[in-house]
Amino acid sequence: MTQGRMGASGAPVVSFENVRKVYGHVKAVDGLTMDLRPGETVAFLGPNGAGKSTSLDMLLDLRKPTSGTIRMFGSDPYHAIKAGRVGAMLQSGGLMPEVTVRELVALVTGFHPRPLPVEQTLKRAGIASFAGQRVDKLSGGQTQRVRFALAIVGECDLIVLDEPTAAMDVETRQAFWVNMKAEVAEGRTLLFATHYLEEADQAADRIIVINKGRLLADGTPSQIKARAGAKRISFRLDRIDEPFLLGLPALVNVEIRHDLVQIQSTDSDRTLYALLDAGYRPREIEVSGVGLEQAFIAITAEDDRDGNGTTPGRSDSAGVASYAQH
């Protein structure tokens, strides 16, 4: 959609510079460095406890970093937020009870320095049909959409969404992304955290993966998938020579069950040709793309293994990040 990534022009919308957040002995965020460029749609991925929420909280000035710097539109986050440049929706954000949806949206619209018409916001968020209902009488999915409405009550330059579709059913989720794409088509930058990997795959120009508070991978969805082996090759083979299979080129991972072999490879053609050139004639060959989900699991699992060693592994993750960007 947006072509603005890599060579994007202009100063970063958001920059994290070696940001750390420590609670007692726990390093929730441990030296995170990243940039968001104008117009990008960026998915923020990581397993539970990876530091996503803490990072978003610090970005939105709800928590202060223990060390490091966060800049937003060239100033500190607090001033950018108070200037109305950010529309944000958090999982942990609540709504004022005892008022109607329309009253609430109108109230929050009034806080914004560049407000948009209330009726328009209600339509854009898909909540016009229940605008007269009381906020405390809504379903989970409806509440979620009202939260989204509060993030878009004014003209902002950056939208930050923490698991925006968590309480939504499939249909509502699709409708949500249709609306969301219209928002970012106007040149806004979007950062969203999600658990739904297919959502990141479909909506994002760029994916940032963090684990244990550190940046693990940063690149386009296809780059992230390539990180974990882009293709899966499966076939049946009668006499299996395991050492030979493990020596195949471009190989990431091999699984063998009886006569069934499953290989993850960064270059399925090369791997397959090498197998055939060696004289093997496998049956029922299937080559398929690896989903983002497998890529994500592979990347974080690899990091967790590395993390058990003696080195803290920070240089590793920086290496991974630069690898993914090339």
Binding site: L60, D61, L62, I81, K82, A83, G84, V86, A88, L90, S92, G93, G94, L95, M96, P97, V108, F111, H112, P113, R147, L150, A151, G154
Partner: peptide, 16 residues
């Protein structure tokens, strides 16, 4: 309202 996150929500707005 603090527990529900309404205070957090307000901190995300341009309200002082």
């Amino acid at each position: 309202e603090r527990k529900d996150g309404w205070i957090r929500q307000l901190r995300l707005t341009a309200l002082p």
